[in-house]
Amino acid sequence: MSTEKPGYFTEENSADVVIARNADASDKRLAEVMAVITKHLHAAVKEIEPTQEEWFEAIKFLTSVGHTCNDWRQEFILLSDSLGVSMLVDAINNRKPTGASESTVLGPFHVPDAPELPMGADICLDQKGEPMLVRGRIVGTDGQPLDGAKIDVWQANDEGFYDVQQKGLQPDFNLRGVFRTGPDGTYHFKGVKPKFYPIPDDGPVGQMLQKLGRHPYRPAHLHYILEAPGFETLITHIFDPDDPYIHSDAVFGVKESLLAKFDLISDPEQIARAGFDRPYYEVVHDFVLAPAK
């Protein structure tokens, strides 16, 4: 272990002195990561020139974020989401070839082992809200349809709540389902038109957003996990482009390629053909999966 001192700590050389202290790290990747973080953190402090009081407020904020975390709530992930870091990490780890559908964050409300349903089934178990038909195709980047692709889909209800948020009010697995495509790669299922909803804003992250003049809302969307043998798994959403928060998603999850028009269908023949007894929303969106690396 090295005991050499690279120099006394000064305002000018602060980052270099700290980084040099980690020269004997057994985990070289950790040392590399900490060197980058140290450089940028020290540069930010030098640019901001915080007072002692401001720095202590930052410490108290991070402490409060930690105290808010528990078995079912992760305030640090919420902080990462609201700063755009979660989406940046997702983008770096999900670079796609030309033509492949883009990913976005998983979100906290996915439930494993949702029931597998016959294609075309209605995932709305309580029949509340405005009916919706979602359909499209799943293909590879070569345009060929994917037979046997697994589609895991879930959504919030017409009030902006997931079933796990309203135990006893919504049936278990309400607005969730798993489907598998046939040889033509098409899919279709019924649900209800989702609504925008706020991320948890009763903690320190919510207070931060309020002070920054930001709202906590996510625009209306549907969640997908798409899997097919020989292809990369795609975790993504599709969004309502007419939602009032479509241009200001609190977690920066919206991408232009993931916008899917929610068209209101009122023609009696189309209503009857779709199996509804009243006007419904139709959403058409195709997905393109990238070949496995």
Results as ranks from 00 to 15, higher is better:
Gln74Asn: 10
Gln74Val: 03
Gln74Ser: 09
Gln74Thr: 04
Gln74His: 08
Glu75Asn: 08
Phe76Asn: 13
Leu78Lys: 05
Leu79Asp: 01
Leu79Trp: 09
Leu79Ser: 01
Ser80Asp: 09
Ser80Ala: 13
Ser82Gln: 11
Leu83Ile: 05
Leu83Asp: 03
Val85Lys: 07
Ser86Gly: 14
Met87Gly: 09
Leu88Ile: 01
Leu88His: 08
Leu88Gln: 10
Leu88Asn: 06
Val89Asp: 11
Ala91Gln: 02
Ile92Leu: 14
Asn94Cys: 10
Lys96Tyr: 01
Pro97Lys: 01
Pro97Ile: 10
Thr98Gln: 09
Thr98Asp: 03
Thr98Arg: 08
Ala100Arg: 00
Ser101Pro: 03
Val105Met: 12
Val105Asp: 15
Val105Tyr: 12
Leu106Ala: 14
Gly107Thr: 04
Phe109Asn: 10
Phe109Gly: 00
Phe109Cys: 02
His110Val: 03
Val111His: 09
Pro112Trp: 11
Ala114Thr: 13
Ala114Asn: 12
Ala114His: 14
Pro115His: 08
Pro115Asp: 02
Leu117Trp: 02
Leu117Val: 01
Leu117Lys: 04
Pro118Arg: 05
Pro118Tyr: 00
Met119Trp: 08
Met119Leu: 15
Ala121His: 11
Asp122Gln: 10
Ile123Met: 07
Cys124Gly: 02
Cys124Thr: 07
Cys124Gln: 04
Cys124Phe: 01
Cys124His: 01
Leu125Ile: 00
Asp126Thr: 00
Asp126Gly: 00
Gln127Glu: 11
Gln127His: 13
Gly129Cys: 02
Gly129Met: 03
Glu130Phe: 04
Glu130Ile: 08
Pro131Arg: 07
Met132Arg: 07
Leu133Ile: 12
Val134Tyr: 03
Arg135Leu: 13
Gly136Arg: 08
Gly136Ile: 06
Gly136Phe: 10
Arg137Lys: 10
Arg137Cys: 09
Arg137Pro: 01
Arg137His: 09
Arg137Gly: 00
Ile138Cys: 12
Val139Cys: 12
Gly140Ala: 06
Thr141Ala: 06
Thr141Val: 13
Gly143Pro: 12
Gly143Glu: 07
Gly143His: 07
Gly143Asp: 00
Gln144Tyr: 05
Pro145Gly: 03
Leu146Cys: 07
